[in-house]
């Protein structure tokens, strides 16, 4: 499969590194390749991956969203008010409410970006601050513990007892993650909208001349990212059992790092769901491995930073070499 290395160099290299990491940790520790560790890895990273695929769509369309993590907090808070207002609710209502609220917040971004023709990083930094400021203002920074039971009850989609009597199980969030990942893959790979998103991110003027509706592109990209933010927020409450207004503050950069690591291009036109999964897995397994090996957690950030530098610059280097030799061949 050397073709993969040519068409998706970042993803392919990341997959190799990840494989080596997994083999290394399996041999180096006796705790990594255990059912308990793997299920907890999945449980702990389901929400990150839900957000990652949402952000991926925005990146493909040539934008960036800094605001989605605090938007998820806003969704949690507003959804909690709504559920209490209607006297409970259930999972079906929960998904609809969280998804819809997320879409609304995403559309605020899309509307501002398209309406004022301001680049997305500026708008989403503004909405990041506005969302967070409003949230802290209205909640006074207080946590909400009094949540409907359905929301905080653990639902296991898989459970197994090991020989030593310890239980390992997968949360509902893992199932939701799988659905979100498949849906995003379907959107960007199987629909005409997906092709338009890639094209719009790649060459906006070219897409516009071909008849792509720019406004529709912003709606789809930021709407999708907002919906994933909302659903991720909903599932995060199920895991954390409470709504903490500032709990998700700062998570946007972790998710962004994972998505970029997975080969999505800041500037648009490039990025895959598989890359996203690999990126989130890499970050998760690196952190997990360092824990298991008993290495200082401070090393983690350093390693992620270095890996991003390596992954992105090495793919640029090889591209530069090709275009240079191409020039020499042609010139």
């Amino acid at each position: 499969m050397p073709d993969i290395f040519r068409t998706h160099p970042v993803e392919a290299r990341l997959a190799v590194v990840l494989l080596l990491l997994i083999v290394g940790l399996s041999l180096g520790t006796d705790t990594f390749m255990t059912m308990g560790n793997i299920t907890s890895l999945l449980n702990n990273n389901a929400v990150n991956l839900i957000w990652a695929v949402g952000l991926l769509v925005v990146l493909i369309a040539g934008g960036i969203d800094i605001s989605f993590a605090v938007a998820a907090s806003v969704v949690q808070y507003v959804a909690a008010q709504i559920f209490m207002g209607i006297g409970g609710g259930n999972w079906a209502i929960g998904f609809v409410v969280a998804g819809a609220l997320g879409i609304c917040l995403g559309l605020v971004n899309a509307l501002l970006i398209h309406g004022f023709r301001v680049i997305s990083i500026v708008i989403t930094i503004a909405t990041f601050n506005a969302f967070f400021g409003l949230l802290m203002f209205f909640t006074h920074g207080r946590n909400i513990y009094n949540l409907p039971d359905w929301w905080t009850d653990r639902i296991f989609i898989f459970e197994r007892q090991a020989a030593d009597g310890t239980w390992s199980e997968l949360n509902l969030s893992v199932a939701v993650m799988i659905v979100c990942v498949l849906a995003t893959w379907g959107l960007i790979r199987l629909t005409t909208l997906g092709h338009q998103l890639y094209a719009f991110g790649d060459n906006p003027e070219g897409a516009r001349r071909a008849g792509v509706n720019i406004w529709q592109m912003q709606i789809v990209a930021f709407g999708w990212c907002g919906m994933m933010a909302g659903i991720g927020g909903l599932m995060q409450v199920n895991i954390a059992q409470e709504v903490v207004p500032n709990a998700l503050y700062g998570r946007e950069l972790d998710v962004l790092a994972a998505v970029v690591l997975g080969g999505a291009r800041l500037g648009g036109g490039r990025g895959t769901v598989v890359g996203c999964i690999l990126g989130v897995m890499f970050v998760a397994i690196t952190q997990n491995g360092l824990n298991l090996l008993g290495i200082s957690p401070f090393a983690f950030q350093m390693i992620i930073g270095a890996t991003i530098l390596l992954a992105i610059s090495s793919s640029n280097l090889s591209f530069g070499r090709r275009s240079r030799s191409e020039k020499a061949g042609a010139a």
């Binding site: 629909t191 005409t192 092709h195 338009q196 094209a199 003027e205």
Partner: peptide, 25 residues
């Protein structure tokens, strides 16, 4: 007005992807 990060096939077929109604392709 082409798309450098898309494949040759995706570029050539692109105008088919633009329409009022989004659809599966």
């Amino acid at each position: 007005a082409l798309f450098p990060h898309m494949t040759v096939a995706e570029n050539i077929a692109f105008d088919d992807m633009v329409g009022v109604m989004p659809r599966v392709s």
